[in-house]
C-alpha cells in the first residue's frame, strides 16, 4: 500500500451544524441507515449458517395431476350446481331463490375462510423467513445489516393486538449494537409478554392432557384426547403470536411441528424424556396409567414448545431442558396427588 493511494478514508472534521442527527432517541431506523458501500461489504461475506435444505420442487407430472384434478372437480361441482339451480328454478321460483341464496352464502363463507387460512399461511411463511434472517444475522458481528430486518419485523407486527409494546421494544434497539446483538436484544425483550402467555398455555394444556390420559379408561381414547388438546393448544399459541389461526395454517404448523420433532432426532427426544424422567426421580411411585399420562403431558409440552419456536420470528434462546424439567415435576406431583385422592 503506497501512502499516496490508500484504501482507507482520511479522518475529517465536519461542521456540527450541517449534519443530520441520527441519535437513537429519534427513532431507530435513521441511526442504522447504511452507507451504500457498507451494505455491499456485508453481502460479500460468505454465508456461515447452515443453509436451509432446498425445498423439493414437485415434478411436472405431479403438478399436471393436481391442476387437472382441480379443474375436473371444479368443473364437476360447477356442472352439478348449475343443474341444481336449473332444476330448482324449474320447480318453483321461490325454491330457486332459496337454493341460489344458499349457494351464495356458502361461497361467501368459503371464500372468507380461504382468505383467513391463506393469511395464516402467509404469516407462518413470513415468520419462517424472518427467523431464517434472524438466525443468519445472529452469527454476524457486522453492523447495519439488521436495519432491513427491523423494518420487516415492525411490518410483521403492525396488526398485532400488542403491537405497541413490541414496536416500542424494536425502537429501543441501540444504535451501537451490531447485528448479532440486535437479535439477542430483541429475542429476549420484544416478545416477553407473548412468551409468558404461551408458556402458561403450554403448561395448562400439558397438565390437562396428562391428567385426562391418566384418568381415561380406554387406551384408544387417549390418543384422541391428546390430539384434541394439542390442536387446541396450537390454535391458542398461534393467536398469542398473532398468526391467524385458520385451519390450513394450523395443519401447516402441525406438520412443521411433527417435522421438527421427527428431525430433531430421536436421540434428542430420548435425551429430553430420559433426563426429565430421571431428573424427577418420582416416576417409580406412579402407576402405569399415570406414567402414560406423564408421557402424554410431556409430549404435549414438547409439541407446544416447538410450536412456540415456529411461531416466533426470533430465535428462541431459553434453555428448553429447564422448561421441560419444571413441567415434568409439576405433572408428576399432580398425577400422584390425583391418583391418591381418587383412591386408585
Amino acid at each position: 500500500m503506497s501512502s499516496s493511494k490508500h484504501d482507507w478514508h482520511r479522518p475529517t472534521f465536519l461542521d456540527p451544524a450541517s449534519i443530520e442527527n441520527t441519535d437513537t432517541r429519534q427513532g431507530f431506523i435513521p441511526a442504522t441507515d447504511i452507507p451504500p458501500d457498507e451494505a455491499e461489504a456485508v453481502d460479500e461475506t460468505p454465508e456461515t449458517g447452515i443453509p436451509e435444505p432446498k425445498k423439493q420442487k414437485s415434478t411436472w407430472p405431479a403438478r399436471a395431476l393436481t391442476a387437472s384434478l382441480i379443474a375436473l372437480l371444479s368443473l364437476a361441482v360447477g356442472a352439478e350446481l348449475y343443474r341444481l339451480l336449473d332444476w330448482s328454478f324449474g320447480l318453483h321460483t321461490l325454491l330457486g331463490t332459496a337454493v341460489a341464496s344458499l349457494i351464495i352464502v356458502c361461497t361467501g363463507c368459503g371464500l372468507w375462510q380461504l382468505r383467513r387460512s391463506l393469511k395464516g399461511l402467509r404469516q407462518l411463511r413470513h415468520t419462517r423467513d424472518l427467523r431464517t434472517e434472524a438466525q443468519r444475522l445472529s452469527t454476524r458481528n457486522s453492523h447495519g445489516g439488521a436495519a432491513h430486518f427491523l423494518n420487516r419485523l415492525e411490518a410483521h407486527y403492525r396488526d398485532h393486538p400488542q403491537q405497541d409494546s413490541i414496536i416500542q421494544q424494536i425502537h429501543q434497539v441501540d444504535s451501537s449494537y451490531n447485528d448479532a446483538e440486535v437479535i439477542r436484544f430483541l429475542s429476549s425483550h420484544a416478545l416477553t409478554k407473548q412468551d409468558k402467555l404461551a408458556r402458561a398455555c403450554i403448561r395448562k394444556h400439558s397438565l390437562a392432557a396428562g391428567t385426562l390420559v391418566a384418568l381415561s379408561p380406554w387406551a384408544s381414547f387417549d390418543m384422541l384426547l391428546a390430539g384434541w388438546r394439542n390442536l387446541r393448544m396450537l390454535r391458542e399459541i398461534m393467536s398469542i403470536y398473532g398468526v391467524a389461526p385458520g385451519a390450513s395454517a394450523q395443519i401447516r404448523l402441525l406438520k412443521q411441528v411433527f417435522h421438527s420433532i421427527a428431525f430433531a432426532g430421536i436421540s434428542d427426544l430420548a435425551l429430553d424424556a430420559g433426563s426429565t424422567f430421571l431428573g424427577t426421580g418420582l416416576t417409580s411411585g406412579l402407576s402405569s396409567r399415570a406414567s402414560q399420562g406423564l408421557g402424554a403431558g410431556l409430549f404435549t409440552a414438547r409439541t407446544g414448545l416447538t410450536a412456540m419456536e415456529l411461531c416466533r420470528p426470533l430465535p428462541f434462546n431459553v434453555r428448553r431442558n429447564s422448561v421441560m424439567k419444571r413441567l415434568a415435576g409439576e405433572l408428576v406431583t399432580q398425577l400422584a396427588t390425583g391418583a391418591r385422592t381418587s383412591g386408585r
Partner: peptide, 20 residues
Amino acid sequence: VRSTQAAQARKDGQLLSCLK
C-alpha cells in the same frame, strides 16, 4: 460512559457515518 452521538454527514456525495 458514552460521550458521543451517532450522526451522519454527506461528503463528496457520499453518506459518511460520523460522531458528534
